[in-house]
Design a protein around this nucleic acid. Sequence first.
DNA 1: TATGAATGAGCATTCATTCAT
DNA 2: GATGAATGAATGCTCATTCAT
Lengths: 196, 196, 196, 196
Amino acid sequence: MGKREQAKQRTRKVIIDAAKELFIWNGFLNTSTKEIADKAGIAHGTLFFHFPKKESLILEIFDREGMYITDQLHQVLHDTYGVEELLHRYLLFLEEEEDFFAIIAREFPYYPEKLKQRLLFREIGIRSYFLTALNIGKAEGRYRNLDVTAALTFLFGTINYLLSHREQLAGKQSIIALKKELIINTFLRIINYKED
Amino acid sequence: MGKREQAKQRTRKVIIDAAKELFIWNGFLNTSTKEIADKAGIAHGTLFFHFPKKESLILEIFDREGMYITDQLHQVLHDTYGVEELLHRYLLFLEEEEDFFAIIAREFPYYPEKLKQRLLFREIGIRSYFLTALNIGKAEGRYRNLDVTAALTFLFGTINYLLSHREQLAGKQSIIALKKELIINTFLRIINYKED
Amino acid sequence: MGKREQAKQRTRKVIIDAAKELFIWNGFLNTSTKEIADKAGIAHGTLFFHFPKKESLILEIFDREGMYITDQLHQVLHDTYGVEELLHRYLLFLEEEEDFFAIIAREFPYYPEKLKQRLLFREIGIRSYFLTALNIGKAEGRYRNLDVTAALTFLFGTINYLLSHREQLAGKQSIIALKKELIINTFLRIINYKED
Amino acid sequence: MGKREQAKQRTRKVIIDAAKELFIWNGFLNTSTKEIADKAGIAHGTLFFHFPKKESLILEIFDREGMYITDQLHQVLHDTYGVEELLHRYLLFLEEEEDFFAIIAREFPYYPEKLKQRLLFREIGIRSYFLTALNIGKAEGRYRNLDVTAALTFLFGTINYLLSHREQLAGKQSIIALKKELIINTFLRIINYKED
DNA sequence: TATGAATGAGCATTCATTCAT
DNA sequence: GATGAATGAATGCTCATTCAT
């Protein structure tokens, strides 16, 4: 990579960092390209040299961030086979990055198609951990004979709903912190045989 | 009602109809007052004679539609005490008005506070039917000893999630039609003792 | 005057009263015809039956109000020949009606030409009291050999300036109350021989 | 200054010149940003690139003009200690820029607070020349034992009044040219011992 | 590579006035 | 005489994108 290329990459990173930060505060939809350029300390036009459409910037951000987050989640989840433990760790992770995930949950329907696909794809990656754990547990007779995909739709759907409505439901607090127990308990009751 | 009043109501209706149609296509947030006026065939300013703020137009639409829907739902749900039947009817209704509900699910977080409150209030009304049915069933020993509120959070959260992601999950089709069975079966398993 | 005509006059009065009140609060320029009609309890269109232009309404108001005020001032000033007493009474009167006069002073340059003429004409009527008193005093050797018209330009110009800048100079207080002494003393020094 | 910067300054100047011209004709309040852009031969949006708010454009105009004027006035007044000479020069200057000052006098009460402050501040700067000259003259026994602040309120108040009413009092002519002698003579009589 | 000035369509809202009823 | 619904031009401002330098 020549010096030229290095400088280019450096600028890209500067832009992405600035965008990410603003994005967490205000969401992608309410962050203007000018704001991003200003925060990045580059010219407004420069941004469009690196990312010809606002859309391509957001795409790249999610690919980077998504990759990082997916990596982290893989580390967090990969040696965990119990569903309860998995859920615990997943929710802890969401709680830590709640600002980020709440924005995504809310803005998702307005993202460009390509980005929606990628986000959905990534969610599938995360679901697969649960899928595996559930199937194993089912095979071992620890869980009820549920349609695991359906159960996960309920789990992820509910979490998404809570995140996107967090402002109404939890104000400035963490909606995940607030509902963690409820989510875990209810999901465990869904999959478990026994009553408490 | 005099002729004058009739004409006024006609115009109001023309506006509301235009707005509703555009709104179902593009959402409230992406529909401009000018677009509505053009579609309604009236002057831009006329719209503001009938609805002084964009918000008041949307509020009226929701109140009309909401009242109609709530009325219908009450009729549909009011003499139904079995949760399964209740859910069936509710989903059938959502399916019929899916365009409308999908937009709300997607845009909700961006609505003005007043509208959010009203929508939330209406949802509580609907939930109460399920709450009653669940509590009766629980008391009669037909359902598991679940935290019913938690169970309903899962149910409504999941439905909301499906609606707001319908484009991705079902394209132009009805997401409710597609997932109805899954929703019902899973929810019944959540609340029932027995396995299938 | 037939019943019809009576009703017409009654409506005119209702409109004028409403307009006057709003005008003192917000000025003529910031009062909309709709506001006036609402406050008067008549239809918006009715206002234009009685006053085909907004301008004609304001013209009428000033004629009525102006006549009343001029009458009052005449009563207050007519048997007063000392300039000091005259000024005292005039300022007292301004102070009592300061809201009204401050608005006029500020808005004057934006009034329709016809109205400006009339207001100016009225001011001349008031000035004439001072003119007479000053000339008599001069003839009797009580005042300096001043150009009385020039002196009055200073007096009325200054008062007008204070009224139109009252917000900056006196906030919510009465600028006349605040500067009365200064105005009187300075004007007396202008016209008197002796130092204090 | 690079070519780029030059071009920018040129555009700024084009905007300011257009604005100033329109402003002298119609006042700031009755000149729309679109009008200014059209007259300047630039896109409407471009105006907001250079001046993010209408207020900032007007502020800049006043600062430029005000600075120029203050500079000139300082040059004109700074080595002048006689009040008569001072007044002469000041009025001559007002006469030359009368279009500008007349608009300010008229619109002042409607300006944004920030602008009012600045204008008031500038006036104080000008007044101080007179204050100094008057106090010296008083100390040297050349002028009467007047309250100088009060005298200046009369002077500036009157000038302001004449400017804001110029249309009525002088039509298209210069009100200052018309009343210069009157102002000077009267003010001198106010401060002087002797009669003419 | 980078710059940043320029673009112009788009937005919600206001308001004096008109006119059919 | 009175009504009030309808009009539409006008307003200040935003923002993703373009392009000459």
